[in-house]
C-alpha cells in the first residue's frame, strides 16, 4: 500500500496551529482595544496643554497622570499575555500604540509631571528609555530572552512624536504669554535634533520620522526669531 499523498494528521496539526494563532490575535486585539482607548483619552487630555497657562499645569498633569496610570495597567496586561508568545511575531500589532503611550509619558514628564520620590517633576526633564521601562514596569531592549519589552525604536519614535507636539506648544505658549517656554522648547528640540544626528539610520520608518524633526526645529526657530526681533525673550533665557 502506497502511503497517501497527505498524512491526515498533517492537516489537523496545521489547522490547530492556525486556530491557535487566530485566537491569540483575537485576545491581543481585545487588550489593544483597551490600550487604544486609554491612549486616546490621555492624548486628548494632553492636547489641552496648548491652551493651558503654565500656572495650571499641575492640575492638568494630575488628570493626565490618571490616564497614564490606566495605560500602564493595560500595558502590564499586554506584557503578561504577549510574553507567552514569540515577541516579534505579534509586535507589529501593538508597536504603534505603545509608541503613542510612550509619547504621552515622555511629554507629561517633560512638562513637569511623572514625579517620583527620587526625581521631582520639573519642566524640561527627559525620560530615558530606562525611565520609560520603569514607568511602565516592563523591561526595555531585551536581548537575552523572548518576552514583552519596549524597543529602542519604539522609544525613539515616541520621542519624535513629542518633539512634534512641543513645536506646536512653542507657538501656543507664546500666545499664552509664556515666552520663556518657547525659548526652552527651542533649546530642547535643537539638542534632540543634534542627538538624532548621532544615529546611523537605515532607510526605514525611523529614518523617515527623524527626517521630519527638522521641520519642528524650523518651526521653533521661527518662533524664537519672532520673539528676539521684538525683544520679547526674557533676560535670563536669552543667550
Amino acid at each position: 500500500m502506497a502511503p497517501p499523498m497527505i498524512d491526515p494528521a498533517l492537516f489537523e496539526q496545521l489547522k490547530t496551529k492556525i486556530e491557535e494563532d487566530t485566537s491569540v490575535r483575537k485576545e491581543l486585539d481585545q487588550i489593544l482595544d483597551d490600550l487604544n482607548q486609554h491612549v486616546s483619552f490621555t492624548q486628548g487630555l494632553l492636547s489641552r496643554i496648548h491652551s493651558t497657562p503654565r500656572a495650571k499645569y499641575a492640575t492638568l498633569l494630575g488628570q493626565v497622570e490618571g490616564g497614564i496610570k490606566k495605560e500602564i495597567e493595560t500595558v502590564g496586561k499586554l506584557s503578561a499575555f504577549a510574553s507567552q508568545y514569540p515577541y516579534y511575531k505579534y509586535n507589529h500589532k501593538w508597536t504603534r500604540m505603545v509608541q503613542d503611550a510612550i509619547a504621552t509619558v515622555i511629554l507629561c514628564a517633560w512638562l513637569g509631571g511623572m514625579a517620583t520620590d527620587s526625581k521631582p517633576g520639573e519642566v524640561g526633564r527627559l525620560l530615558t528609555l530606562e525611565n520609560i521601562g520603569q514607568a511602565f514596569n516592563v523591561p526595555v531592549n531585551l536581548k537575552d530572552r523572548d518576552a514583552f519589552h519596549i524597543t529602542v525604536e519604539e522609544y525613539l519614535l515616541g520621542l519624535i512624536a513629542v518633539i512634534d507636539d512641543l513645536s506646536r506648544l512653542a507657538v501656543n505658549s507664546v500666545t499664552l504669554g509664556d515666552t520663556a517656554m518657547a525659548v526652552q522648547i527651542s533649546g530642547f528640540i535643537k539638542d534632540l535634533h543634534a542627538g538624532f544626528q548621532v544615529l546611523n539610520l537605515k532607510n526605514d520608518i525611523l529614518r523617515k520620522r527623524v527626517d521630519s524633526i527638522k521641520y519642528a526645529v524650523k518651526k521653533v526657530e521661527d518662533v524664537v526669531y519672532d520673539l528676539s526681533l521684538r525683544n520679547l525673550i526674557p533676560a535670563q533665557e536669552a543667550q
Binding site: L126, T128, L129, N141, V152, E153, Y155, L156, D191, L192, A194, G195, F196, V198, L199, N200, L201, L206
Partner: peptide
Amino acid sequence: NAYTPMFESLRNEL
C-alpha cells in the same frame, strides 16, 4: 550636549 551620550548608546543598539 546633555543628550549626546544617550543617543550614542542607542546608536550602538541600532
